[in-house]
Design a protein around this nucleic acid. Structure first.
Lengths: 205, 205
DNA sequence: AACTCTCTCTACCAAATGGTAGAGAGACGG
DNA sequence: CCGTCTCTCTACCATTTGGTAGAGAGAGTT
């Protein structure tokens, strides 16, 4: 039963999956354990409580997210091209590790106590992103607006389009790979139109 | 203890609140009951099971949502003005009844069994929205693109910006009323830029 | 007065949950 | 061979959970 992967990491992986997919409350240590071919007490040996396990999962997930983001951000791209690169990255993430975005969604639930933990990890990266937007606006490579608000709009749009699978089905968009690319293409067009520096003449009321 | 509001409706209201805020799994019938000053069995008298209660909550919420939407859509506005009216409406909803959007978020969780129920209710309205976009594109009042995908982008952006309070805090945006208006203003600018019919010259790579 | 219908209650229950206590097995150094 | 350290296990436990069974109280009807 020893798959050369240390038990602790296997637990973390399975927990990330379960928490990110079903949520914290709907995940039991027993189901997690049986899914791993292990007893619940083995989990509690590595993590003293369910909450502690959740915290560790958040830590691990945040580290992955930050790493991914920083890596993509350190290529020195500018303006809309950097934004598009990030979007591509998030879409790849939504396909390869949907539970990661699901976990973010779970942690950011209104009234969550654990948001602070995530925020502590991703805070600096958010600051960096905001600084980037600010800089690019000043340089005239992005349309001027409030960077914080823009960041929020971008976050909502990208994460939503990347991970709201059920809503997509409701809107008649299949879950196929082709549809995924289509979503990304359309989203990119959407974002590019909103960010491109040239002000389109808005129709007057 | 009889507040003239029928118990059944009070249960529905409290359940919508709890399910929409904390989620299905994290809500217990006992907590719901004590919150209502009533025994759990009273709830089970009106709704045969927790799942049945959840279903009824979804039905009620969907009805509210559809009604709101149809009402706003039947004013005969066109193009970007109709879109902006809907956005205003959703923001008002996010302030006055945040649990409603929270419930949608809960129901559309990946792997949810109950999505079908919501979809059955809002399906026609979604179709109507898509038809609207299509028509306005053809009339040249909105930029041409895939209506389904655009709808998805709009949904993600608007609902996210309207209801992702914790993410907003992480991005340094306070929950004040002024900030709410700011979010809406910025979002509207974002969406208008993306939808306005005039194609801005995209910078070439 | 007796009956029925509506509603809320008390009294339980089986299953599941997070967690404690501690035994046993293997590896490893002295 | 012995002690110790690491890891996983069995055995329990208190609490909570969704749900069943049925009593009781009040209002209206006959």
């Amino acid at each position: 039963m020893n798959n050369s992967v240390p038990t602790r990491q296997r637990v973390l992986q399975a927990a990330l999956n379960a928490f990110g997919t079903d949520g914290y409350a709907a995940t039991s240590l027993d189901s997690l354990a049986s899914q791993l071919g292990v007893r619940k007490q083995t989990i509690l040996y590595y993590f003293p409580s369910k909450q502690a396990l959740f915290d560790s999962v958040i830590d691990a997930a945040a580290q992955d997210l930050v790493e991914l983001f920083e890596q993509e951000a350190s290529r020195g791209r500018t303006g809309i091209y950097q934004v598009e690169a990030i979007i591509r990255r998030i879409f790849r993430l939504a396909v390869s590790r949907p539970e990661l975005l699901g976990l973010v969604r779970e942690v950011t639930r209104p009234g969550s106590i654990t948001v602070g933990r995530l925020r502590a990890h991703v805070g600096p990266t958010v600051d960096r992103a905001r600084a980037f937007l600010e800089r690019e606006m000043t340089a005239g490579r992005l349309r001027r607006s409030d960077p914080s608000m823009l960041l929020l709009s971008l976050y909502s749009t990208v994460v939503g389009v990347a991970s709201e699978l059920e809503v997509q089905r409701a809107m008649g968009i299949g879950p196929s790979a082709r549809a995924t690319v289509g979503r990304r293409t359309e989203l990119t067009r959407f974002v590019r139109a909103a960010l491109a520096p040239t002000d389109p003449p808005a129709p007057s009321p």
